[in-house]
Structures are given as C-alpha cells and as structure tokens.
Amino acid sequence: MSTLTVWKFPEADSAQEALETLEDLQKQQLITVHDGAVVSWPEGAKKPKTRQLSNMTGIGALGGAFWGMLFGLIFFIPLFGLAIGAAAGALGGALSDAGIDDSFIDQVKQKVTPGTSALFLLTSDVVVDKVVPAVEGLKGELIHTNLSDAQEHKLREAFHEE
C-alpha cells in the first residue's frame, strides 16, 4: 500500500534537503518513492515555487495533473494544461479519495507560508527502523498522511510531535 504524506519544514530549502536524504535511502532500498513534489516558498516571494519529482514517476505515480490540481487549490497557482470540467471533477474526486479535502487544504495553507517549504510524497516499502533515524534531524512536521490512526500515532511519536 502506498502512503501519501505531507511534511512542512521551517526553511525554504529544507524540503529539498529532506528529498536528497530520501533519495539516498531509496538507493539503499529502505523506501520506495513513487512520486512527489517539493514546494519552496522563499521569504518575500508572492507565491511558492513547486516542482514535481518527475525522475521518480512510474507505476503508482500521481502525475502532473494531480499535483497541478492540488497546488492550484492550495496556493492558487494556475493549472497549466488542465482541461476544465470533467477532468477537474475527476481529479477532485481523486483528491477526496486520497483524504485531501477542504480541511487538508486549509491546514496546508496555514502552515506552508513564506520562508518555509514542504515535501509531498507517495511512498511504500518503508523500512521504518532505518528511515526514521535518518530523517529525525530534518525538523519536518507531519501535516498529513493517509496512514491509519495507529500508524500515524507511531510516526508522530517517532518525531516527538504532540
């Protein structure tokens, strides 16, 4: 089963650093990153910069339309190449199926602000006892996951979140 997680970081370049750590862990076969996107919002910028992890896309990847729709909803970034109407409705349904609703969108809007960054990931095959120690020092805050409550509690506990 794939897990969608969203992590917020206190600096505009921290999400990219976290991604580099995860890429190293993937090379060691400790996690599989199917897809993702980095959001970086430098201090003073009117809107964040977004980048899909296109080099990691493959089977199970969410695709550019998913990320475009998601970031358009969250940050009001124009949706390039996205057909209006049925396609938007279908993607809206896909977002809801992944647990991405108005509450999620509001939460990300409140937390990802100028001077911060975020990492959106679709992962599987995580070797938790190896991955958690490797990412503990990154100071990421888990904003969202589609894990079960028990799994999410364990993950938050590992990062000492309340």
Rank of each mutant, 00 (worst) to 15 (best):
M1A: 15
S2V: 10
S2G: 01
S2D: 11
S2N: 13
L4E: 03
L4V: 12
L4T: 10
T5P: 00
V6F: 06
K8E: 12
K8R: 13
P10R: 07
A15L: 00
E20W: 07
T21D: 07
D24G: 15
D24M: 12
Q26W: 02
Q28I: 02
Q29V: 02
L30N: 09
I31K: 07
I31V: 15
V33Y: 05
V33N: 05
D35S: 11
A37H: 04
V39L: 12
S40F: 03
W41D: 10
P42E: 11
E43C: 06
G44A: 10
K46N: 05
K47N: 08
P48E: 07
G58P: 10
G58D: 08
G58E: 06
L62M: 11
G64K: 10
A65N: 11
A65G: 10
W67Q: 03
M69W: 05
L70S: 01
F71P: 01
G72I: 07
L73D: 13
I74K: 04
F75R: 04
F76S: 15
F76C: 12
P78Y: 06
L79E: 15
F80K: 15
G81F: 04
L82A: 01
I84M: 15
A88D: 13
G92W: 02
G92A: 08
L95W: 04
D97C: 04
D97N: 13
A98I: 01
A98E: 10
I100C: 02
D106K: 14
V108W: 00
K109V: 11
K109H: 13
K109N: 11
V112G: 06
P114H: 04
P114M: 02
G115W: 06
G115M: 05
G115H: 05
S117P: 00
S117I: 00
A118E: 10
L119M: 04
T123V: 13
T123C: 03
S124A: 10
S124E: 12
V126S: 08
V128I: 15
V131N: 04
A134E: 11
A134M: 07
E136Q: 15
G137S: 02
L138H: 04
K139A: 14
G140P: 08
L142E: 06
H144R: 04
T145S: 15
S148A: 09
S148L: 10
Q151Y: 09
E152K: 13
H153Q: 14
R156D: 00
E162V: 12
